[in-house]
Structure formats: C-alpha cells, structure tokens
C-alpha cells in the first residue's frame, strides 16, 4: 500500500476555523479554532468522541454553517466561507458529503438509478433522461453494484448496498473531495470492511481526497494518511497518521488509543501462559 504523495498540492486549507452556535441567548462554541492542510489525494481522519465538534467542523468545511462558521476555509485557494454564488455552485459539484445513515439520506420513493440520474441532471452532467440513466449505471458499477440494482428502492437494498448507492450519488457530480461522517458505523462488521476498502480504492484509482470523520481509531489506522484528534472543540494533536497512532504525544490521544479493544492483544494479556 503506497500512501499518496505527501507533497501533492494543498487542496484544502483550514485556518482558525471556529463554529459558534447562538440560540436563545446561549452561545455554544462547537469548534474552537482548528487549522490544517489537506493535500490532494490524501485521506485526513478527524477523530473525536461525541460532542468533540468533529461533525460541526465537517459542515463548516463544506460551507454548510454559513451563520456559525468563521475563519478561512481555502479550497484550491478560494475561501468557501465567503464565495460568491457561481464559485459556490462549482465547489458544491467538487466537494460532497457522505452521511452515516443512507436510509435517512436516500429518498425512500426513488429507485437507486433514478436517485443518481436526478443528481446528474441537476448538476448538468447529463442532458437527457436517457443519458442520465446510462451514466447512473456506470456510477453504480464504479461502486460495485451491477445494473440489476438500478431499479431497486432503498428498502430493497442491504445497508452496505445503500451506502454504495450513497457513495455513487456523491461521486456522480464529478466530486473529487468527499467528507464522510461515520460512513460505516451503522453497518455490520463484515460489510464495513468492504465499504472501507471501496473508499480506499476510490482514493487510489480515482484520486479522491477524503476527510473521514469518526470515533474509531482502528478504522482510522486502516484508512487515514493524516489524523487530527479533537476534544471539546479543539484540535489536541495532528500529523501523519502513523505518528499520531504509534507515537502519540497528547494524553487524550493516548487515552483514546488505550480504549480501543483489540482481540489478539486482549487474548494474549488474559490467557498468556
């Protein structure tokens, strides 16, 4: 496995990103000034526990927190937070979100193929229904689903298949940058591994740049080139994944690492003879 070049151009630069929600006179600082660079073709893992601000940060990076986010989010040098409408439309094609629960984010009354075709038409990737349907089948095959799946409704698909459709829907806009928020935590273990491997393949073969949001450091070990550890809204540690995982500096990172259950090490600790 070769990690993507550590010296590829910077795709996304976050500078002192803050997210502050104000509701009913109360001020909640969800993200307290996070700064990082993400280079093209790499996977950045953002780990943290619930309430760490990782999902708020993800939304801010995509310009989905217009009223709450401050700082700068430079995508190919242009600030997502202050973009004009045209620039924003182009950004929305290139940068997409993949959610945890595909059942919640796929329209239950729309067949898988139609869901993709709609996105293709809206984003002007296809001009006619027929062209959109053809492209939709191609995108389904990119995520490992054959043409039989195009006419199926979400409830006729397994959890893993739904997540594949979801990935295809994000990719078919022509996206090169995907933010996946806990994309496998709703799936069974045997299915999780296959979706993670698909994501890795997309990174390798199509040059997709990923941000993977999650709580599971073992998943991050398998996926991330770089890691950013968040605790109560702030970044406590960041760097190349191997450094953060195998030579952690911050006590919180160490606590997180020591909390990950591991079958062989538990067995050898408990049953060593």
């Amino acid at each position: 496995m070769t990690a993507p070049a550590a010296d590829s151009p910077v795709l996304l630069r976050a500078e002192d990103v803050r997210v502050v929600y104000r509701r009913a006179g109360r001020r909640t600082e969800a993200v307290k000034g996070v700064t990082f660079d993400l280079r093209e073709g790499r996977c950045l893992g953002i780990v943290g526990e619930s309430g760490s601000g990782k999902s708020s940060l993800a939304r801010a990076l995509l310009g989905l927190e217009p009223d709450a986010a401050t700082g700068r989010v430079l995508f190919r040098g242009r600030d997502v937070l202050t973009m004009d409408r045209d620039a924003r439309a182009a950004f929305r094609r290139e940068a997409q979100m993949v959610f945890q629960d595909p059942l919640g984010s796929l329209n239950p009354r729309m067949r898988a193929g139609d869901a993709l075709a709609e996105v293709l038409l809206v984003h002007g990737r296809a001009r006619t229904r027929r062209e959109a349907a053809e492209q939709a089948s191609e995108w389904l095959s990119v995520v490992g689903l054959d043409a039989d799946y195009a006419p199926r409704y979400p409830h006729e698909l397994s959890g893993g298949q739904r997540q594949r459709v979801n990935l295809a829907r994000s990719l078919c806009t022509g996206a090169t940058f995907l933010i996946a928020d806990e994309p496998v935590s709703a799936l069974d273990v045997s299915v999780q591994a296959r979706i993670l491997n698909l994501m890795k393949d997309l990174q390798r073969t199509r040059g997709i740049t990923w941000i993977l949001i999650g709580h599971d450091l073992a998943v991050m070990r398998a996926m991330a080139d770089d890691l950013l550890v968040m605790q109560s809204g702030g970044c406590v540690e960041s760097g190349p994944a191997s450094a953060v995982l195998f030579a952690p500096r911050h006590p919180y990172t160490r606590t997180l690492l020591s909390s990950v259950p591991d079958v062989p090490s538990s067995l050898s600790r408990r049953f060593a003879t």
Partner: peptide, 10 residues
C-alpha cells in the same frame, strides 16, 4: 469476522 475487524496494530 476477525479478518474484517479493523485493528490498531502496526
């Protein structure tokens, strides 16, 4: 199942 389980070990 064991092969599908992500692990921290280097």
């Amino acid at each position: 199942l064991l092969r599908a389980l992500p692990r921290l070990a280097p």
